[in-house]
Every structure is written in C-alpha cells, then in structure tokens.
C-alpha cells in the first residue's frame, strides 16, 4: 500500500537519502530505527509529500506522491501523521485540534466533527480533557490528542515520527498502548521509534537506517536475534542496554 522506490533527497550539496526502497503492505506495522541524523524523519516526511525529493518514486495506494498532478492535500488527508513534538495547535482546545481538519478538509459540519472528535478523544482516554488547551495537558496527553487528530480523518495508514522520544519515561506507555491497540486493529503503520519493546511486541518488520540508506529490512524476529550488518548490531546493543 506504501511503496518507496529508490528515493534520493539532498539539502543543497548534503545528500540525506541515498536510494531508499521499502514497501509497507496493508495492515503491516513497520518500525524504522537508526542513529540520529540517519534520515528517518526525512524519509517518513517524503511519504506524505511534506519533503519533496529529487529522484525515485513513492506511491500510496497506487497514487504517486511526487506527481505534480496528484492532489497532495487529498492524499495527505488519508495518511495520519504523529510528530515527535506533538505540534498541537496551542490556540485551540483538544476538541478543536481534532475537529479542525474534519471541518475544513472533510467538510463535516462543526457538530458532526465535534461528535466524532469526542468519540475519538474518549477512545484515547481523554474524555475529560476535551476543552483543555495543549498547555494544560501533560506530554503523554498531548501526544494522545495528536494521535486522535490523525485518527479523526479515518486514515488508511499512519506515520509516526518518534512519538514518545519527547516524553518523560512514565508517560511513554500510555502512548505506546494507544499505538499498540491501533496496530492490533489492523492499521497500516510506519513508526520511527527507538522503543525496541514496542517493536518486539507489534512490528512485522524492522528497517534499520544509517547514513541515508536502509541497511536492513527484516522480519522483527530476525532483526533482534540475528541482524545482518555490523552497524545494526552495534546500534542494537546501544539502545537495548541503556
């Protein structure tokens, strides 16, 4: 359903992605990991066209992201995205955050949108926080609003860019639980994370990136027991022991 083929991306002379290829099938959960600066965020932002790339193709449900004729906003509305720093709109309540795109993209009435937002916020355990501003919420609560905002669009797939790495340790689990539930329901997910426990529990495959390349693309069992590359081994010992 998501097909990435030979994607190259540079910022000026600095090459960030050097020919990345990967596929994510319907209902699959793919975890992407790798050292800082390896291009994980860049790759995931290429998938919904937030970052333009020079070479290669990415298709989502057969629609090319880089084709100038593609209606990108329409495509993006079918792909949820969750950010490391939450990126909730600070001037709106939790409910308004979740309703905004439903109203202006899906053209739902405010009443319809709010009704749907309430259901989803309740589902992520925030039934009592609908009218709170992001500044009144904890990090874990904010990220759950972030997930609710994406889910409200009934996405066909979800992209997560380090959804828990800005959180205090005691809040990581409340977010991972929501993500795990989504995975069990069959959501197609691409997740950049260093939470190896999460990967072990729900991932189908693990991609390991370094230096702008996907060095490994393996079923999770194999990745954790017998990584093919030396760099992945080193990376694993680092993240698993700390």
């Amino acid at each position: 359903m998501i097909a990435v083929e030979d994607v190259h991306k540079s910022y000026g002379k600095l090459q960030i992605l050097r020919g990345c290829s990967a596929t994510v099938r319907q209902g699959e959960v793919v975890v992407i990991c790798g050292p800082s600066g390896s291009g994980k965020s860049t790759l995931i932002k290429c998938v919904n066209g937030l970052v333009p790339f020079e070479r290669g193709t990415i298709t989502v449900n057969g629609v090319s992201v880089s084709d100038p004729k593609t209606d990108l906003p329409a495509l993006r509305s079918r792909i949820g995205m969750v950010f490391q720093s939450f990126e909730l709109y600070p001037h709106m309540t939790a409910l308004e955050n979740v309703s905004l795109a439903q109203i202006h993209v899906l053209k739902r009435s405010r009443a319809e949108a709010d009704e749907r937002s309430e259901k989803i916020l309740m589902r992520v355990g925030l039934g009592s926080k609908m009218t709170s501003r992001p500044s009144q919420l904890s990090g874990g609560q904010q990220q759950r609003v972030g997930i609710a905002r994406a889910l409200a669009m009934d996405p066909a797939a979800m992209l997560f860019d380090e959804p828990t790495s800005a959180l205090d340790p005691e809040m990581i689990n409340e977010v991972l639980e929501v993500m795990q539930e989504l995975a069990l329901e069959g959501m197609t997910m691409m997740v950049v994370t260093h939470e190896m426990g999460f990967a072990q529990r729900v991932a189908d495959r693990v991609l390991f990136m370094d230096g702008g390349e996907i060095l490994e693309d393996t079923p999770k069992a194999q990745f954790f027991t017998a990584p093919a590359t030396e760099r992945a081994k080193q990376f694993l010992t680092k993240v698993l022991t700390h």
Partner: peptide
C-alpha cells in the same frame, strides 16, 4: 514553528487554510 504548518498540511489542509487557521492566529 515550522512543525505547526507541517501538522496542518499533514491532515490535508491546503496552504491557505494552514495560514488562516493555524499560522496567522498564533
């Protein structure tokens, strides 16, 4: 923050809508 516009675009809002509902109020 740049991420604010990205968040809006990622939900399918168009540039003008992001400007009007997310960036300009802030």
């Amino acid at each position: 923050r740049k991420g604010q516009a990205e968040a809006g675009l990622a939900t399918g809002l168009r540039r003008g809508q992001v400007m009007r509902h997310i960036v300009m109020p802030q």
